[in-house]
């Protein structure tokens, strides 16, 4: 039953990432694109974890942690760049 649920989760994640990619490409404002990139990072974390569950690999959890940290740092840096015009003052 878990295998079927993993397949369904893969499909839902593909659809969600396609929606995020559409918003990255066609977002009317720059903040929309940054928000879509942040959501894309969250979806990639879930995708890597589902892949780790399927392959029974422990290495992929560290990859998911690194992706989560990079996503947070990237979102904070881009939002600060929009607000202040500079990342590190």
């Amino acid at each position: 039953m878990t295998d079927l649920a993993l397949d369904i989760t893969f499909g839902a994640l593909v659809l969600a990432m396609l929606a995020c990619g559409w918003r990255v490409l066609r977002g009317p404002e720059i903040a929309d694109r940054i928000l879509a990139l942040d959501t894309l990072y969250v979806n990639v974390v879930a995708l890597v974890i589902v892949l780790g569950m399927r392959q029974r690999s422990e290495l992929l959890f560290e990859a998911a942690l690194i992706v989560a940290m990079l996503g947070f740092v990237a979102t904070v840096a881009l939002a600060r760049y929009l607000t202040r015009g500079d990342v590190i003052e």
């Binding site: 989760t9 994640l13 929606a19 929309d32 979806n43 879930a46």
Partner: peptide
């Protein structure tokens, strides 16, 4: 485990669809 996975997939899909369908940035947030 299957139920939790399906709940997680549903909410991830709902989040992305909401970001796709809402009308302005503050709704999309």
């Amino acid at each position: 485990v299957a139920l939790l996975l399906l709940i997680g997939a549903f909410f991830l899909l709902v989040g992305a669809l909401g970001m796709l369908r809402f009308r302005d940035f503050f709704q999309r947030l």
